[in-house]
Every structure is written in C-alpha cells, then in structure tokens.
C-alpha cells in the first residue's frame, strides 16, 4: 500500500485505511467482516476510477514523481534474471544517479530463448540517505559517460539496449559544468543514435529535459501512462515564463507533457498502461506491462542488420516533428 498520498489520492487512502482496519479485525478473529471488506474494496476501486478518469496534467506530473513510484532498480528486479550492474565512467567516478548493467529478461515460459539486454536508467532514492547518494536522479556528466561506455559494450556483444528515463533533469552543479555537462549529454545522444543494436526507451517517471533526451534517442520511445516528458518542469516554466510559481498547474497544461499529449503529437511510439491508481499501487502489474512492451519492441527490431538499425534510427530522428 502506498504510504504517501497525494492530495487527490486522499479519498483512496481513507478507504484503504478502513480496509486495513477491518483486515486486522478479521485476523484477530473477533468477527468475520469479509463482506464489508469486499464492499469497501469495490468502493475503493470505483473511487480510484473516478479520480483517475479526469486527471489533469499537473496531477499526472505529481504521479510521475510519486515517492512510492517504482524506480529503475525496482523494474530491473522484477523483469530480469541474473542482472549484473556495472559501475563507473573509467575517467572520474561512478555516478549513482544512473544504473546500468546486463541481464536476461525473465522468461514467461521455459521454451522461450533467453533474451539478453542492457538496461540503463536514472535512479532516484527512496530514503533520505539513498536520495542523496542518487542525487535525486539528477546526473552529473559521469552518469551519461558511464551510460555511453555501456551502450558501446552492448553494441560489441550485440545486446539490445533498454533505457529507463526518470530524472528531474541533468544536475545544474559547479562540478557538472567543470567536467562538461553539455558535452556529456550531447555525446550520449550521439552515441545512442549511432549504436548498431536496437535501442528502446521508456519514460517511467519524470522525463526532465536534457537529462531525459540524453537517454531518449531510441528506435522506439514509450511512456508509462502517468509519466511526463518535457523541455522544462512545470514549476520551472511557471517561474520563468509566467513569473509566478503559483501558475504551475497552468504551465503543466500548456507544456503538453503527458503521454497522451505526446502520442498525439507523434513524439512517442506508444503508451504503456499502468495498473489501477498508478504503478505505485501495483509495481508487479506495471512491470509486467513494461516487460511485454519491451519484448515486443525487441522482437520487432532484432532481425534487422546492424547498419540498417542505425540508419533507420537516424532517419527517424532527422524527421521527428519536421516542419517541412
């Protein structure tokens, strides 16, 4: 159950608390309240449906950053076997806001051939200490450079690349500038665009600006239903363009940053549905949907010759959102 509740999730939380209470009641054997629990669960699902039917862009932005939302490592845990994480950019440090490694996609049945993948993604932290270590998912140049190193290894071993995007943006720090943040992002885009194995990107939470596109130059780009993808955060946009942070909701709407918006604008290739109430309410279902999309996309791409994969990707990106 989600411990943290967004404002618009509160009615759900209240029902969930009641359900929990009744369950303990049940356990203690004082009385059988199965019927009531069932009723409340039906009611809860109805309430969730009602709320989620009419989410606005700002609410979706809040969901995309929900503190209980599954992160890259949660998905890796659920969808891979024998995952081995790699570390470091071989030049300066290991940026822990980016995780990357090789593994097999978990098989649904034993008859299937094992599918190797490289998964690289932004990683946010859950506890305060973890958040600090992960720098809130905001990468320094070394994060993008570690990624580039792994992209090239994947190419060498003919392993498809999956990137999971979840960052507020690249870190705006002194050291980041000193060590070439701009170059690191540009080079990450360049490397992905030119790599000769399939590249599939999924925005799983926040797709924040340059930090997101650094991992987003893929053959196929998907978004989880309640993720966002934007050139600037709604808050940033409100404060810079509207000169008023109170207008964040308006800015979120104007930016067209939801999965639906971006599919309509032909920026992404598909939306991965989330479980009722969002991925944080059932990370296993969310991961299953993610996995299915990844497998399907790999199957679509994996028989293409390496040069063709690269050339088609370049062509796609030269023409994205073309004006003429």
């Amino acid at each position: 159950m989600a411990a943290y509740l967004l404002d618009f999730e509160k009615p759900i939380g209240e029902l969930e608390n009641k359900i929990e209470e009744l369950k303990t009641f049940n356990l203690s054997g004082i009385a059988n309240v199965d019927e009531e629990i069932k009723n409340l669960e039906t009611k809860r699902d109805k309430v969730i449906n009602e709320i989620f039917k009419n989410l606005n862009s700002w609410q979706i932005a809040q969901l995309s950053r929900h503190p209980s939302r599954p992160y890259t490592l949660d998905y890796i845990d659920i969808i891979t076997d024998n995952f081995i994480e790699m570390h470091g950019d071989r030049a300066f440090m290991d940026d822990r806001s980016v995780v990357g490694g090789f593994g097999f996609i978990k098989k649904d049945n034993a008859a299937l051939k094992p599918q190797r993948v490289l998964i690289v993604g932004h990683q946010k932290g859950r506890t305060t200490k973890d958040k600090m270590q992960r720098n809130f998912g905001m990468s320094n140049p070394e994060g993008y450079r570690k990624a580039q190193r792994l992209f090239k290894l994947a190419e060498k071993y003919l392993i498809p690349i999956i990137t999971l995007i979840d960052t507020p943006g690249a870190y705006p720090g002194l050291g980041a500038e000193e060590r070439g943040q701009s170059e690191a992002i540009a080079r990450s885009i360049y490397t992905l665009l030119n790599i000769k194995v399939p590249v599939i990107s999924v925005i799983i939470g926040e797709g924040g600006s340059g930090g997101a596109i650094a991992f987003g130059a893929a053959d196929k780009v998907f978004m989880l239903e309640y993720s966002i993808y934007s050139v600037i955060s709604p808050e940033g946009c409100a404060s810079i363009l509207y000169k008023d942070v109170a207008r964040t909701e308006e800015a979120a709407n104007a930016l067209k940053l939801t999965a639906k918006d971006l599919l309509n604008l032909k920026i992404i290739d598909g939306i991965i549905p989330e479980p009722l109430g969002g991925s944080h309410r059932n990370k296993f279902d969310a991961a299953a949907n993610l996995k299915n999309t990844i497998i399907e996309a790999i199957n679509d791409l994996k028989n293409k010759k390496p040069d063709i994969i690269r050339d088609e990707r370049i062509k796609k990106w030269i023409n994205i959102g073309r004006t003429s």
């Binding site: 992002i185 596109i213 130059a217 050139v231 363009l241 604008l265 370049i314 994205i320 959102g321």
Partner: peptide, 17 residues
C-alpha cells in the same frame, strides 16, 4: 520553452543529421 517538447526534440534531431 514555448515550443515545449518540440524544442527538446531538436537536440536529438540536429545530432542525428
């Protein structure tokens, strides 16, 4: 920023060409 995601896409577009 006024062109939202389209402006972000130009980053990858220009690198692609």
């Amino acid at each position: 920023m006024q062109e939202g995601i389209f402006s972000l896409m130009q980053m990858a577009r220009t690198i692609a060409v």
